[in-house]
Each structure stands twice: as C-alpha cells, then as structure tokens.
Amino acid sequence: MIRLRGITRSFGANRVLAGVDLDVGRGESVVVIGGSGSGKSVLVKCILGLVRPDAGSVLIDGAELRDRHARDAFLARAGVLFQGGALFDSLPVWQNVAFRFLRGPRALPRAQARALAVERLARVGLAADVADRLPAELSGGMQKRVGLARAIAADPEMIFFDEPTTGLDPIMSGVINTLIRSIQREIGATAITITHDMTSVRAIADRVAMLHDGVIRWTGTVAEMDATSDPYVAQFIRGAAEGPIRALR
C-alpha cells in the first residue's frame, strides 16, 4: 500500500504541491488527473525519490521512505513508464528491457536476460525482431511499448505510469491503455498513473484522484467521477474552458 501524507514541494516562489494526501491500496489502480503544470509529474517524482519533497512523508506498506536504503528497496519492487519512454538510446531494445538483469545484484547470464526481454516484448505485442533494434529506430507507440516492457520486466509490485498516451494517436493510445490495464491486473500490481487523457482514465482507473492547486481536491470511482457535482472535476472531464479552473495559466 502506498500512503502519501502532507507532501509539499515548491520551486522558488511557485508552490507546486501544497500538502498532498493520498492512499493507494494493494493491487489498486489510481489515476491522478489534473491540468498541465498542476504538479502531477512532481508528485510521482516525489514518491520515486527523484524529487525531494519539502515536507511530508511517503509510506510503503506502513514504512516511511526515509533514507537511501529504504528507497533502494522500494525501487527494486517498482516499475516506471516515463512520459517520453526514457529508453537508453545507446542500448538495443532488449538490453533496455532486461536492464536490471544485465548488471547489479539481479544479473542473469546474457542469453537468459535476452530471452526474458523477448518474452516481455511479446507480452506488450512486439515481435522478437524488435529486440536488436535501437530505440531511435522505433515509432513513438513502439517506444512506449518497449518502455512498458521495461517497466514490467521484473514483475514489479508497484507500477507508475507518467502520461502513458501522450503524443500517441487514438488507436495506439487505446492499445497502450488496454495493455496497461491487462498487465496491471495480470501481475496484481499497485498502479499510479498520471494523465490528463480522459480515455486513459476510463480504461485504467479503479479510482480517480484530482490534483488541483497543489492538493488532492477530489477522489472517487470512474462512475462517481461521471456523476460528481464538483465543479472542478466536472469542468476537467468536460474539457470546458469556462469554470473554476482557469484555462489560461
């Protein structure tokens, strides 16, 4: 279980997170929605330890991530799909996917690591011939799928998806959403996805949380989201220019 309490983070005078509280149950898929610049990416980076919060705590299964060792242990159980894929462009696809298994404490013989990578690529719908290509030789959708294969390579207990469908056409977005949902259910992972794509929200979420003005303003299921009277959530899901959320920021 992931529990966030009072996470704050400012950049200069800009207070991006102003006390975020959020609970994500084991095996649950929570999607955090919010406008561009609302701090969704910063929130996920605070959980992953890539950005240090000014205050507040991140608890995993009740234990706070206080030091490097706790964070390392947490990251060993986590997988991350980055917005732009963040594939290592000097390495072929299979070495990206099997990165954890080519070095460090979980290193496997190369042939075994490669076989594992090919199996994970198949799981995201990519053929074995992709394995030896470089990331730059792949389309955006294929890069996302390779990123997804890398995120699930070690069967993580927790997966984080940062804008998984940004920059993809609607069909490829649908493919990625379906993959994310099916893989998350298959491996029973706890998932946090950040997005402003409502199609993704409906495809992926068990529960939705809206981040606005640095705090979680609303949480509920997709059905509750569709029926909510909260003017912020209603404006966001309608994509309306008029409403309490300023369109020009």
Partner: peptide, 9 residues
C-alpha cells in the same frame, strides 16, 4: 534517462 537509471536501481 538518468531518472530512469535511478528507478532501475
């Protein structure tokens, strides 16, 4: 990619 390295332990 450097953030990705960190998340890959």
């Amino acid at each position: 990619q450097i953030d990705a390295l960190v998340t890959l332990s």
